[in-house]
Design a protein around this nucleic acid. Structure first.
Lengths: 187, 187
DNA sequence: ACGGTAACGGACGCCCTCGTCCGGTTGGCT
DNA sequence: AGCCAACCGGACGAGGGCGTCCGTTACCGT
């Protein structure tokens, strides 16, 4: 029974260690890190890494599953807020901070990858929810009338440009930027 | 007489062709392109390229001299405007568009390079002018009171995150973004 | 406890980039 | 015209990332 690579306990362990390493390294250094860097960080040979995840996309897809869920949570929380304007604001803040904390996920979400990350469908769903909340906030008169759902992605992409040596610096810059963007979008 | 590498006409020609190639390639693909790519584009051997410009920094410094001047011009034009608010606005628009049209210069200006590009001093001067115009616009009541000069750099850095396949798409996104940022900064 | 096999990882060959050397070419001066 | 130095660029060796092969290890079922 079971999928390949999971019949033995050490294989399962390695798989988890690789995912943990990938999460840490992707978050800190982005999607461009060499696969071997992740293998080293996980105390695993290159072959083992490639056996579990044949491509960087496959690895990123699995590694970012939880961040993807965090995205949903942030957007859904915004949607659940009875005040659409406040919901919209907290969504922007939440997404910007999440993206600032994880360079790799930010790059993946803003589709820097050639095409079709494994979670392209999930991303699409999140984008639809973002659009829904944006529309709702606009129709409640909380946003300028010419704001489009795509503007949120514009803001996220711009947020990705905020580089900085330390994660703390990135988060701080991102926070200030989110506030600026929100003021630029509100009515 | 003359500096080395300039005693012969073919050397001067090559130097110019290299600079043209560097401007084109840096603008299109950023600072990360291999030196050889520029050499190929200039129909020149690698050795010739390295003889004229021993490092990528040296090359970028010379190649971007005119963009640097364009930066000055944009900021000075803003400073010259009798309405500081309008001057500030046109500066943001101008800088964002310039940066969107030239990925390499945008990267160099936002100091992605380790340190001390050749024009670090020039950059510093531009930053001071930006700060001056920002302060002036704020004291004229055109900007929110909590806006700091550093916010303009924040906006420029964020603008650099706006990737896009075609230059046209980048410029379009950048324009929309500049408008958003301006609304976020104005009183 | 022991055999069989899933799984591991060191090592390999390929390709790309880097910066440099040196034999050949060519522009400029007489 | 002819020389000579300035200049060119193909070729080299080092360094690093890539994805894969295969001999070895160690988990699991009996």
């Amino acid at each position: 029974m079971g999928l390949p690579h999971l019949r033995r306990s050490d294989a399962r362990d390695n798989r988890e260690r690789i995912l943990d390493a990938a999460r840490a390294v992707f978050a800190a250094d982005g999607l461009t890190v060499p696969m071997r860097e992740i293998a080293r960080h996980a105390d695993v040979g290159p072959a083992t890494l490639y056996r579990h995840f044949p491509t960087k996309e496959a690895l990123a897809t699995e590694a970012f599953a939880d961040r993807m869920r965090a995205c949903y949570a942030i957007v859904d929380e915004g949607l659940a807020d009875p005040d659409p304007g406040r919901g919209f604001t907290s969504m922007i803040e939440g997404l910007c901070e999440l993206h600032a904390r994880d360079r790799g996920f930010a790059a993946a979400f803003t589709a820097e990858f050639p095409h079709a990350l494994g979670f392209a469908a999930d991303r699409e769903r999140a984008v639809r929810s973002i659009a829904e909340l944006t529309r709702r906030a606009r129709e409640a008169g909380q946003l300028r009338p010419d704001v489009e759902p795509a503007d949120v992605l514009l803001v996220l992409m711009a947020n990705g440009g905020l580089q900085g040596a330390s994660p703390a610096a990135r988060v701080a810059a991102s926070r200030r930027f989110a506030a600026l963007a929100i003021r630029g979008l509100r009515a």
